[in-house]
Amino acid sequence: MERAASGITRKFVLLAIGRLPEELGRSWFDKCFRGLDRPLRMAFRRRPGISGLQGATAARAQYKTLGEDVAKVRTEQMTEQLATFKKSLEDFAQKYKNDIKKQPAFRAQFHEMCAKCGVDPLASNKGFWAELLGIGDFYYELGVQIVEACLATRPHNGGLIDLQDLRALVAKKRRTAKEPVTEDDCIRAIGKLKALGSGFEIFTVGSRRLVRSVPTELNRDHNEILEMAQGKGFVTAAEVQAQKGWPPGRVEDALETLLREGLAMIDDGDPDGQRRFWFPCSSGDGNLSIEGQLGEGPIR
């Protein structure tokens, strides 16, 4: 067997290796192909004599174009490697599937590491990850619940809600589900929702994370006012002016925009006579009952 032929034949044979049964005997082959290198010899060992040579010729004919051959081998390589990896993942899933579901810290770690590897386990429900670990449905369903909760509270908060409040709302809805939901889970679900282009976004204001579900853009001034409102839930124009040192016009503009976008509401009832601007998304201390925000209405 010349070098060139053996190169192509070798590939052809290697392809077939996985399927060859062990029953065929050894000795006759060893005699014929002693001169060849070991892997090739092992490969040929399993072939009946004449058809072995025929196989080689057929192989040569079959793989005229080396390019095609290479592509096919790479695919094979990939498939094999995938099969191996999939087995590892299956073992891992068998052992830890429940943990991923029940232990938020472990789950969060899992996600972080996937991200570092450049793997998105939530990309598709058809992926290994979703199928074997069963986490796809958990996040996609959470996504649906988040969208619904944001929609239900939008008349009140203008499309901006504190992540903590959102998580509590969703958790309440999931009363029947046995899997706890964490803020991290919400963040992952929202991260996926972004692709749907309705303005879903999480951003940080001060010490809190806010979830936006409308395409409204807020500028720096707005964010700073939101931050100021955290804790007590409101600001006055005078406070903003004093703390930020902005001219009144700038303060007015910012507050006006926030009002117009439905993110703020005015309150003229305070005894001291100062108008207060309240921000539903900044009232993180939950002075609002949750049932009401779900729009179920305690009345009737």
Partner: peptide
């Protein structure tokens, strides 16, 4: 049972927007 908005002060002021 009073609804959620009843205890949120702004709802007692007529909103301009």
């Amino acid at each position: 049972e009073l609804p959620y908005f009843y205890n949120y002060r702004p709802y007692f002021t007529l909103q301009p927007v």
